[in-house]
Amino acid sequence: MLGADYAGKSSALAELARLVPEVRIVSADDELLDPGHSLITRLRRGLVGDVMPALHRDYSADFMLTMLQAAVLHLRDSIARAPAHTPVLVDSYYYKILAKCRLTGLDQHPLFDWWRSFPQPQQVIFLEVSAETAWRRCGEGRDLNPLEHYGARPDRASFARFQADLHRVMWEEVRTLPVSFIGEQDRVSAVAREVREVLTAHEPV
Rank of each mutant, 00 (worst) to 15 (best):
R175H: 12
E197P: 09
V174R: 07
R175T: 13
V188A: 11
E184G: 01
E184M: 02
S189F: 07
A192K: 06
V195E: 08
V195N: 02
S189L: 11
L177E: 04
S180R: 06
R196T: 14
A190M: 13
V179G: 08
V188T: 15
A190S: 12
D186K: 10
V179T: 06
E184Y: 05
I182H: 00
A190W: 07
E173V: 08
I182Y: 01
V169G: 00
V174S: 09
V169Y: 00
D186F: 06
F181H: 11
E184I: 04
V188I: 12
V191F: 05
M170H: 02
V169L: 06
P178E: 05
H167R: 13
E172L: 14
V169D: 04
F181Y: 07
H167Q: 14
R175Y: 10
I182T: 09
E184S: 02
E194V: 06
S180V: 09
R196Q: 09
M170A: 08
M170S: 03
V191G: 06
D186Q: 10
R187G: 08
V188Y: 11
V169R: 05
E184A: 07
W171D: 10
R175P: 10
E173S: 08
V195A: 03
L177G: 02
E197A: 15
E197W: 04
V195K: 10
V169H: 05
V179L: 03
W171Y: 14
V191P: 01
R196E: 15
E194C: 06
A192N: 02
R196A: 15
E194Q: 13
E172R: 09
R175W: 02
E173I: 01
S180D: 12
V191A: 06
T176E: 09
Q185E: 13
A190T: 07
I182P: 01
Q185T: 14
A190V: 03
V188D: 09
R175F: 09
V179E: 02
V179H: 00
P178D: 01
E197S: 13
D186P: 02
A190C: 07
D186R: 05
